[in-house]
Design a protein around this nucleic acid. Structure first.
Lengths: 132, 132
DNA sequence: TTGCATCTTCTAAAAAATTAGTTTTGGAAA
DNA sequence: TTTCCAAAACTAATTTTTTAGAAGATGCAA
């Protein structure tokens, strides 16, 4: 039987939550990560340990030892993963046209003019400041 | 025991695939949608019917009848869902700052200057064309 | 050297998502 | 009518994700 290949280039919901604190803190032992995570939601030690191991197998984390304890660190920078995610979203929901994605931000009332100005500045920096 | 509330404001992987063809085609009967979907991947009639029913319960589709057959149509425009998704992504991975998301597009080598120009044009249209 | 504390590894249950078989229903054909 | 067919509704199996207990390992203190 043909096993449905799973993706593994993207994090699951829970994995993303883990990864977020690991990017923020730079990582640490299972206990340290657990402590950080449990500010949001109670979880058992072993649950955290299991997910961390899986994430390592998937290539999102590296692991070493500090005394007897495992220490985990991000294997990829957050920016890289942001890029991967945007590429995925772009292809799945925006017809592979990233501009369409910006279009949606532009007509979202909740996005302020200040934010939009900021975006324009970013584009100007990369493109050069001359008008269209 | 406390049941882990599931989201329901976001589509699952498979649901998104369904929704994409329904947005494209405007919808139709189970058979019509099945035919369209199976261009990509073989699926049983009942599988498709089940997912469509679930999506209706979640509020993504409306359903009516054509003769005995159920006819499904999008309950929300694609643009709305794009917006929801971006808001979600922004909060989960970009610290609630949509500009950070654009920053990531800007420094992606695969995104061409033409695309970036297009984005800038969109921003200019909304903001007015004066410099920073 | 033994018993305890601590941490990992093994294992699997529980929940969510995906897929599809079986039964029921309602209308049309014979 | 009765039979037959197509489609929905019901039900359930399978897979993936999430959670966590139990068992095993390792070092340290008495």
């Amino acid at each position: 039987m043909r096993r449905k290949k799973q993706d593994n280039s993207l994090l699951t919901e829970v994995e993303l939550e883990f990864m977020t604190v690991i990017w923020e803190t730079g990582g640490g032992t299972v206990h340290e990560i657990l402590a950080e995570l449990n500010k949001d939601q109670e979880r058992a030690y072993t649950s955290v340990a299991t997910v961390l191991k899986i994430m390592t197998e998937k290539g999102f984390l590296t692991s070493g030892r500090k005394d007897r304890a495992l220490v985990y660190h991000p294997a990829i920078p957050k920016a890289d993963y942001q890029k991967t995610t945007l590429k995925n979203l772009s292809s799945k929901l925006f017809n592979d046209t990233p501009a369409a994605l910006v279009a949606r931000l532009v007509d979202d009332e909740e996005v302020t003019n200040d934010m939009l100005e900021e975006m324009r500045t970013l584009l100007n920096e990369r493109l050069g400041d001359h008008g269209s």
